[in-house]
Design a protein around this nucleic acid. Structure first.
Lengths: 145, 145
DNA sequence: CTCTGTGCAAAGGATTTGCACTACG
DNA sequence: CGTAGTGCAAATCCTTTGCACAGAG
């Protein structure tokens, strides 16, 4: 389900930006690239640090604004993980699934889903245009039990 | 699935607190009571306002701390809804399912789930003690399409 | 060339401490 | 009675604006 290369996903996101009339600036490219290569599950400031490892010219504000933009486009999504700042997760193909350990905040992503049918049912019942979904299991990982 | 009365749910939460050695103060009782009666999906400050309608003696700090405590116990969970402050949702029986409209931030809760099997599979595969889950569909509601 | 996007600094909120006081058990 | 819990105010952290400048199209 999730066998796209980073390259492909980068292109998809850039295409989505372009299609909506947003510009493909070098800052945005670096931000998207870094977000993809680190796999998501990162805060805005955390992402800024990653970016600064290779490029100091991108500013914090641009990271915040780009993440907000990508959220609006439905490409990523902020979630709470532990306390404090928002963590952004990637929404490949509109959905995302993970386990979170409430002990150590470790994250394990998975692909199983089985929610297509439920989604269709809900879309009909509530007259709702479903664009994607997030599934989050929480509990205790191997080490924290 | 979700046919518990407010009374029952209040007792369950209070029992969970007691069992873990936490005290059942009057502030905590009011906070939990207000949270249940408003159905969740509310910010800390929003909840404080609701409480203050009937009781001005509960302080903001206590609300924040109680919500954090309930989160640790797995009884509620903070989520992003729109931007700004964290919204807390109730986790009855460990799980919660809703639709969120990305246009107007309306929330529709539902009971369908069908994730028990997936949960068991994941628990085995990752040696993970699953305590509950959250399912969030997002898209556009009837009015926002 | 024009207008979107950027970066800085400062403002604005939300959440978290530190500490003396209260009250549950 | 002792300790967990509370409330206030100040501190801290995260995020958003205001504005002049830079760069994509």
């Amino acid at each position: 389900m999730d066998d796209k290369s980073l390259e492909t996903r980068l292109n998809n996101i850039q295409a989505a930006l372009k299609q909506k009339g947003y510009r493909l600036t070098s800052s945005r490219q670096k931000i998207v690239q870094s977000l993809l290569s680190c796999g998501g599950h990162i805060t805005a400031d955390g992402l800024l640090e990653v970016i600064h490892e290779t490029d100091k010219t991108v500013g914090r504000m641009t990271v915040y604004r780009t993440l907000e933009l990508l959220s609006e486009l439905g490409l990523i999504r902020p979630v709470y993980q532990g306390t404090g700042a928002a963590h952004y997760i990637l929404l490949d193909g509109g959905h995302h699934h993970h386990l979170i350990c409430s002990g150590c905040d470790a994250v394990i992503e998975f692909d199983e889903c089985g929610l297509q049918d439920v989604g269709k049912l809900l879309a009909e019942r509530f007259n709702f245009a479903i664009e994607g979904h997030l599934v989050e299991f929480y509990g205790r990982c191997h080490n924290c039990q």
